[in-house]
């Protein structure tokens, strides 16, 4: 899995880059992404051919007429795009989203799972 930036993405919609952890084991890849402030229904995951797009819109309950005096999260949106590699089974992506943390599990295609070769001593 490598990261790419889609050149055709509309640049008008500036977005924050969420921090991620990517861990690969023999069975597949696990991705964690921090998307605080995104409710479940505002999280969008797209798998298109070999591109994985994570997008989320931040919704905070702000009191009416609030003036922001200091903002470190200064855009209302997160976006990050990854290119998946061929051996990953993009049909089988499983996602969990809990308290602003997204966990994605992308297994490797079944026929590409590692198989142990039994060695017999003659």
């Amino acid at each position: 899995m490598s990261e790419t930036k889609t050149p055709d993405a509309p640049r008008a919609e500036a977005a924050l880059l969420p921090p991620v952890d990517v861990i690969e084991d023999a069975g597949g890849i696990t991705l964690y992404a921090d998307l605080p402030g995104v409710p479940k229904d505002k999280l969008h995951l797209h798998v298109d051919a070999d591109t994985l797009t994570i997008e989320g819109e931040i919704q905070l309950d702000m009191p009416e007429g609030m003036d922001s005096s200091h903002a470190e999260v200064s855009l209302p949106r997160y976006r990050r795009v990854f290119t998946l590699s061929k051996e990953l089974d993009s049909e089988q992506v499983a996602a969990e989203f809990n308290q602003g943390v997204l966990k994605l599990r992308i297994p490797k295609a079944a026929h590409l799972q590692p198989r142990r070769v039994e060695i017999r001593v003659a």
């Binding site: 605080p36 402030g37 702000m62 609030m66 003036d67 903002a71 999260v73 602003g100």
Partner: peptide, 15 residues
């Protein structure tokens, strides 16, 4: 942020 009636602090502490 703040309003005339309150001060509001948002800490982004996911997970």
């Amino acid at each position: 942020g703040g309003t005339p009636n309150s001060v509001d602090i948002y800490a982004f502490v996911p997970g």
